[in-house]
């Protein structure tokens, strides 16, 4: 086992042992960071594997959050008000939003990848404006009092320990799923597309379908993060769907390591933690600092701060001898 994989597993172990070290309030705060971590990892998947830079990841995150909130509050006609159903529909909602965007952009004559970025920016801006102006889903104020997720044993996700363990399990499962996809033949095809789309097309792979599925998977995982966010904070607002959050997710992934799931995950935890620690002392300067730090990382560490450290690489059978 390589030391990188050991390090990655050690991180999971440390995260699993956190409840022993932290008080219930800190634990709840830390659980929130994990949600951001899932969102960053979902972006790193599409970024690292397919090379698509999505400036609208919050669109999928926000869709998941809104679907979760609407379902669990019984606001979607014909659908029972179940929190667990909301979670499932949140994932599907995120995946569907991504699939629609991908369907518009990848099929037919296809879109230059440089365009993908600005189309996703526009989509994120419009998503936020739509949510702000749509009275039924709460408009500018969003939706309050999203109920917690009931858990077996009579507790629910509002309990700090249970809430933390719930989010941690979902984070671990998401990581496993995305990692498995990376290492499966599916991931190999995606990397082929990243390197040379036309060649993959001429080899007979349906490039648009692969890209669409990859984006939908990324959107689904982002939707899961959004749904978990809605339960944790028990409210959603247009801010969860907009460009500002999309930008944040992008920064987390880039600072951690855009192509490595674990690096992006830790990037989100790290950046959010620093933000929490500094926001009181530097206030409005935070965004200036993080903007410049982001540029500096892009220039100096194109693989992110942790990209090389946590890159578990490919299974042996896929490596060069």
């Amino acid at each position: 086992m390589s030391y990188r994989l050991l390090l990655t597993l050690a991180i999971w172990l440390v995260l699993g042992l956190m409840p022993l070290a932290l008080g219930s309030w800190e634990l709840a705060m830390f659980g929130q960071l994990l949600v951001y971590g899932i969102a960053a990892a979902s972006l790193a998947f599409i970024w690292g594997e397919v090379g698509l830079v999505c400036f609208g990841q919050a669109l999928f995150f926000g869709t998941g959050a809104y679907v979760m909130a609407l379902t669990s509050k019984g606001m979607i006609p014909g659908i029972p008000d179940s929190a667990w159903l909301g979670l499932v529909l949140g994932i599907i909602g995120g995946a569907l939003a991504a699939a629609i965007l991908g369907g518009l952009l990848f099929f037919g004559v296809g879109l230059r990848s440089a365009y993908f970025g600005i189309v996703t920016i526009a989509a994120a801006v419009i998503g936020e404006r739509l949510a702000t102006n749509w009275r039924y889903i709460g408009g500018f104020n969003g939706l309050l009092d999203v109920p917690p997720l009931p858990l077996p044993g009579g507790t629910d996700s509002a309990d700090p320990l249970m809430g933390y363990l719930l989010v941690l399990s979902f984070a671990f499962l998401s990581w496993l799923l995305l990692l498995a996809l990376q290492r499966a033949p599916f991931g190999t095809v995606l990397r082929g597309i990243r390197c040379d789309e036309r060649r993959m097309l001429s080899l007979g792979f349906s490039v648009p379908v692969y890209k669409l599925v990859a984006l939908a998977v990324s959107g689904g995982v982002a939707g899961l993060a959004g749904a978990l966010f809605a339960i944790q904070f028990s409210f959603v607002s247009p801010a969860v769907i907009g460009l500002a959050l999309s930008t944040e997710i992008l920064i987390w992934a880039a600072v951690g390591g855009k192509a490595v799931l674990m690096a992006a995950f830790i990037g989100a935890l790290g950046v959010k933690w620093v933000e929490g620690a500094l926001s009181e002392s530097i206030g409005a300067y935070w965004l200036l600092v993080i903007g410049l730090a982001f540029v500096a990382v892009i220039v100096i560490f194109p693989h992110g701060l942790l990209g090389r450290l946590l890159d578990t690489g490919l299974p042996k059978r896929l490596r060069r001898p």
Binding site: L288, F294, V299
Partner: peptide, 23 residues
């Protein structure tokens, strides 16, 4: 010579300049 990173860098720049104006 790294166009994808250049796009990201301009994104970071936009964030920083906008925030500098806010400040």
């Amino acid at each position: 010579h790294r166009p994808a990173d250049t796009i990201l860098a301009t994104w970071g720049l936009s964030l920083a300049i906008r925030q500098a104006i806010v400040i």
